[in-house]
Design a protein around this nucleic acid. Structure first.
Lengths: 332, 332
DNA sequence: CTGAAAGCGCTTACAG
DNA sequence: CTGAAAGCGCTTACAG
């Protein structure tokens, strides 16, 4: 049997009101003597107010829900780490949901989370969403990555600018046939990167060839398969990969096709995962601050929980183009 | 205002008892008419029983806690994925805790989790633990990776056998100077792998040199630093890395020191992360079933929650030695 | 300085 | 077939 407040009251010989007030630092001053006696009993019996009973009244679940498309994705796990790092300091815990990139799952998770009276939700989804309706009243929502219909609580990254910069870099280095690996599902950030790529080609009078594009899942294997199809089919001197994981797959595809990076093929990723600088050759990529995105998301959400009226700010994160060994001038 | 059971009762014109019983499929049969009316009202108003009020009575939080040393670790995120995959089917959710390899954090998380009346806890910790006391009474515990003092609920991997096999393979291929990268913290599984390495050398009459060993954090960077120190200091023809991440770091270290894998140095990892087969060269490694470990952990824990009396089984997972391109005979 | 009472939103004997 | 009442373990006016 768990000890309850009643037990403590009985042991100490005071009322449960007194115990409760002392524990919550409420009410008028109690005699130091009773205070001590209560506190001692609490300690001796390792008493903790029941979470559910307490919440029935206080409505402070100190829990937030977080939904990610894939926990094993290196980008998202870094975001989770950031969220956790902030929230744990505030004594909040996070209910983690893995949506497997499924929009249906996301909706179902949101419902479950809401039922559990979470104080807020962080939804990391590249899907464009019409979730507003279900989320409107209750807790606060914060989206990372992805275009949204709402005016607040959007955490975005300069996908377009980051991607544009990387393509321009290739062009500046003499590349004229530049491929791109995108994803099959039309994710927001992938579209942005793709649009930037197209625009950059246009701006540089390079006429786009449809066979320069290939899509697949945004995973290592997805990148491998997509790159293999693309490289077998056509000759490009450089390949912009949707993200670093796809770039890793590309390394393998290139290797199998007898292409050396960067001599025969320049490769650029997006994300700057920890692993990317350790690849052979180290990957040229567009860095985005995954941990910071998570940390900021948590910070904003927390503030919003504490100040229900106030709007959640938006924030757009900068990217940083990092040149490493996987790219080189085309004529070298 | 959230709709409560009272609202539904009022709207339908029945008692709250009736609403509750219908919703829980309890009590004697109600007239089909009232059933329908209640169900409709519930639907119309999107009524959901309050999680806290319900739990105050039912004590079924349908939540488990999971503590991992590092969410961004590729092995653990795979384990998490396995846990989540099983639990989500059971309508359970998981409170994720990132202990950052800290024993103190683990203890603090366990306490918090217990306060929240989780139905069980999955602790993925390489630390040896004296947590039994705090966990004894309340929920069920399940440990993955790590030696423990308790007789049930241990999920282990054949670390020793897996490691031994890999070292023996090197010996069989003519390697006589074989280094090893371990971790600094004395993790259980790392000790096992190390012990197997030592024993295998002994069994093959290879006299161990202390400079063949180097330790560091079990991360990419940790492996990089450790390998660099080791390879600078001494000449080995093969290096067994504590895990795949360390092996990835080793690739970089070898590259920077002008060593070609596998020509100058054979490298073996442990884990078989998805990424490992995509490395250049593909990594020879000892595979362990991370997803399955997580899935099994969740299964056992769930069963134990449902059958409180019954002991949680132990399970030891097999490893599989996978030869890829990072190793070759020494005389080739 | 302290306690009896009401109430949070439910479920579950129990009675009719 | 249905409802009034007690109770889960707390907190919080309110009264003294």
């Amino acid at each position: 049997m768990k000890t309850t407040i009643k037990d403590i009251a009985q042991i100490t010989g005071v009322s449960i009101t007194t115990v409760s007030q002392i524990l919550n630092n409420k009410g008028q001053r109690f005699s130091e003597d009773t205070r001590q006696r209560v506190l001692k009993a609490v300690k001796d019996h390792d008493y903790n107010p029941d979470y559910f009973a307490q919440n029935l009244i206080k409505r402070e679940s100190k829990t937030i829900g977080m939904i990610v498309p894939d926990v094993t994705d290196l980008f998202f796990s870094k975001v989770i780490e950031g969220v956790e790092a902030y929230l744990t300091k505030k004594d909040y815990m996070i209910l983690l949901c893995n949506s497997n990139h499924s929009h249906e799952m996301e909706k179902s998770y949101i419902k479950q989370l809401l039922n559990r009276s979470v104080a807020g939700i962080i939804l990391a989804s590249p899907n464009s969403l019409e979730l507003e309706t279900s989320l409107q009243s209750s807790p606060y929502l914060l989206i990372d990555r992805g275009l949204n219909t709402r005016a607040e609580g959007n955490l975005l990254v300069k996908e377009y600018e980051g991607s544009y910069e990387s393509v321009q870099y290739l062009v500046n280095n003499g590349h004229k046939s530049i491929g791109m690996l995108t994803n099959e599902l039309g994710y927001y950030e992938m579209s942005e990167r793709y649009e930037a790529y197209r625009q950059c080609l246009t701006d540089n009078q390079i006429s786009f060839q449809s066979e320069w594009i290939e899509d697949g899942p945004v995973t290592i294997e997805g990148g491998y398969e997509a790159a293999k199809r693309l490289l077998k089919r056509t000759k490009v001197t450089a390949l912009c990969c949707g993200n670093d994981q796809m770039a890793i797959g590309t390394y393998r595809a290139a290797y199998e096709l007898g292409l050396t990076i960067p001599d025969d093929l320049s490769v650029i990723g997006f994300d700057d995962l920890e692993i990317s600088s350790y690849l052979n050759p180290p990957l040229t990529t567009v860095a985005q601050p995954a941990f910071e995105i998570g940390y900021t998301a948590a910070t904003y959400l927390f503030q919003s929980i504490k100040n229900p009226g106030v709007k959640i700010p938006n924030k757009t994160f900068e990217t940083e183009f990092i040149v490493r060994g996987s790219t080189q001038p085309v004529d070298k």
